[in-house]
Nucleic acid binder design. Structure first.
Length: 344
DNA sequence: AAACCGGGGTT
DNA sequence: AACCCAGGTTT
């Protein structure tokens, strides 16, 4: 009954989203990678861009990684973009351009875990396997009034098993979409609209007025404090940027010269850096420190613009005009800074 | 400031 | 199973 009620609610109330009008695994995979850790509202324009630029997995595989990262710019968690490109190449080279057609094999692809594999397997191939994202997890824990912590792997496994039973003999794709859509639009984290919920009668948490307490997380996110300083070297309208290495954070993306420090002694960083690269300084401009709050880190980032008397050699970087910078994939903090630079 | 969209990857 | 993640946006 659970499944059928939810599906019928979904068919009447679903949002019309482009990836819901296809069973092409390439488009579904693309949308799911974009939507990892990302709201529909934010991911939608990126999906449109990618579909337009890369109509097939072959087209995506043939692109340069730089192009892919440039299109991904601003979306965050850039390893998704790199995995997207790598996986496209694997699918073309090793799978003959056809995505694996089942839950188990899909998880072999880089960037495709349990949730994403279940989503593709059910939407594209109608395999009966539950796609449990945060929305579905919230719906299920509330419906069964599960007070166990959802960040425990064993609890997640139990819920996966329960969900597997629930979806027997129903349309797997629509069922999975339905549960997630209910979580996204009705069974929301705060102020859920229980009055309009199609399954409120059978919802244990609703019955016992415990909706606002569920789901429960055992662990709190740890937040650490970090200090960074960017040196924006400028010479005759050109700016120095470096392509980051393959094995580090923001891999293969471009940014200014970066120093991480133990504290806020940004002056010392400046002295050291100028000395290290033997830079002839014309002038120094200090920008207000930016507080950058991330999920796991509080960052204080200082931008220091150094106008140089010559375009010296500074590590493995190059000097670019503002216009040339547009074509390089950069983290958003850099994009934003350049935006301000342009404004003056 | 914390929560949210969280899943995937590594150890 | 524990731990990590150089995100953007909303509450």
């Amino acid at each position: 009954m659970f499944a059928k009620k939810i599906i019928s609610w979904y068919l009447k109330n679903k949002r019309d989203l482009p990836w819901r009008n296809t069973d092409n695994p390439y488009y579904i995979w693309l949308s799911e990678i974009i939507l990892q850790q990302t709201r529909v509202q934010q991911g939608l324009p990126y999906y449109e861009k990618f579909v337009e630029n890369f109509k097939t997995v072959e087209a995506l595989a043939a692109a340069n990684e730089g192009e892919v990262l440039r299109l991904w710019q601003g979306l965050g968690y850039y390893s998704r973009g790199r995995n997207l490109h790598k996986t496209a190449q694997v699918v073309v080279r090793e799978y003959g351009g056809r995505f694996p057609d089942n839950f188990k094999d899909l998880q072999k692809l880089k960037g495709v875990g349990r949730y994403t594999a279940a989503a593709i397997a059910s939407f594209a191939f109608n395999e009966s396997v539950p796609a449990i994202d945060g929305n579905a997890l919230r719906v299920l824990t509330r419906f069964f009034e599960i007070f166990d912590p959802i960040d425990s792997p064993s609890v997640q496994k139990n819920i996966f098993d329960i969900a597997t039973d629930l979806m027997k003999n129903v349309d797997a794709g629509n069922y999975n979409q339905a549960v997630m859509e209910l979580g996204a639009t009705v069974c929301t984290p705060k102020n859920p609209n229980c009055e309009e919920c199609p399954i409120n009668i059978e919802c244990k948490a609703f019955e016992n007025k415990s909706v606002s307490q569920i789901p429960i997380k055992a662990k709190k996110t740890k937040v650490s404090q970090k200090f960074f300083q960017y040196f924006v070297f400028e010479h005759k309208g050109r700016y120095w940027l470096k392509k980051r290495a393959d094995n580090e954070i923001w891999a293969n993306m471009y940014d200014f010269y970066l120093v991480e420090s133990e504290n806020l002694d940004y002056h010392e960083n400046l002295e050291k850096t100028i000395e290290e690269f033997n830079i002839e300084v014309e002038s120094v401009k200090t920008y207000p420190v930016v507080n950058h709050i991330l999920t796991h880190q509080k960052q204080q980032i200082a931008f220091t613009e150094v106008k140089c008397k010559s375009a010296s050699t500074i590590g493995n970087g190059n000097w670019y005009t503002i216009e040339e910078l547009d074509d390089l994939a950069k983290p958003k903090i850099i994009v934003d800074f350049i935006q301000n630079l342009k404004k003056g």
